[in-house]
């Protein structure tokens, strides 16, 4: 199995330091970058697949030039190599341009499966997997809770989360799967893994290396633009209650009744 895992370095949501710069782009100097949470589930799923079926995992990221440090964690978890598409001209690219770049990068790689997180903690759009699959003509198996490839038969089955249960989907390989937390918790890198990651390859590709992309890239070509950035409307002050359980319960019920929240 040759598996490509799409990985996006994002500002660490737990840092509390994530913010936009004056250009309305993510201020990447403000918060430490981490691998996007859902991408770690995708990588964990890939690692388990390679453990049972053999094969190799390539991380693919489109990110600033500082990204190798972030990708190193994925390599320490067990990915075999990484491909980083980085180019100053990519800064400010919108979702569609990003899809075009990832597609061009994938065209230069050999794979049976492409795994991606269902969405990212910074943008939360969740449309890249479907757009990428459509552009590449790959079958899309989204919202995966389990992935069962049958490389000999050239097909993959996925349990797709739907409201109230699952669909069992099947498609021929190669295919693109978007991954959820239900696939299982990502492992921590072992010391051995961390040591090994130091010598693993992070191949850096510029736009020129990729060749033509489907859509123009960069901020100047973006088909969407930020108009305004504001703080959210303030919530009211918090009322804190320290009382006996019975009194607290009465206070809660009064509060809910006053807000017409009791049935």
């Amino acid at each position: 199995m040759r598996i490509v895992v799409l990985t996006k370095p994002v500002p660490d949501p737990a840092s509390g330091q994530d913010r936009l710069g004056p250009d309305h782009r993510v201020d990447r100097a403000a918060a430490p970058a981490v691998l996007n949470g859902n991408d770690e589930y995708a990588l964990e799923a890939a690692l388990r697949l390679v453990e049972s079926h053999g094969g190799e995992i390539t991380l693919l990221a489109m990110a600033p030039a500082t990204a190798p440090e972030t990708l190193r964690k994925g390599l320490a978890m067990g990915a075999h190599r990484a491909v980083l598409v980085t180019d100053p001209a990519l800064a400010g690219s919108d979702i569609r341009s990003t899809v075009g770049v990832l597609a061009a990068a994938l065209a230069g790689l050999e794979f049976d499966l492409v795994l991606a997180g269902i969405d990212t903690s910074d943008g939360f759009a969740g449309v890249v997997p479907a757009a990428l699959a459509t552009l590449l003509g790959l079958p899309l198996l989204s919202n995966a809770a389990a992935i069962e490839p049958d490389p000999a038969a050239g097909r993959v089955r996925v349990r797709r989360i739907i409201q109230g249960g699952y669909d069992v989907l099947e498609a021929p390989l190669p295919a693109l799967v978007s991954c959820t937390q239900a696939l299982g918790a990502p492992r921590y890198p072992s010391l051995k893994g961390i040591m090994a990651a130091r010598s693993k390859e992070v191949a850096v590709r510029s736009l020129a290396d990729l060749g033509p992309t489907r859509w123009p890239v960069g901020g100047a070509a973006a088909a969407t633009a930020v108009v305004a950035v504001d703080p959210p409307p303030a919530r009211g002050a918090t009322r804190t209650i320290r009382a006996s359980a019975v009194e607290a319960a009465r206070e809660i019920a009064d509060f809910l009744a006053a807000r017409r929240l009791l049935p």
Partner: peptide, 20 residues
Amino acid sequence: PDGRDVAGALSVLLDRPVLA
């Protein structure tokens, strides 16, 4: 979940940008 998949596919089929 289905809407996101439809939107992603539509953006390519219609050649349109996405605001998510």
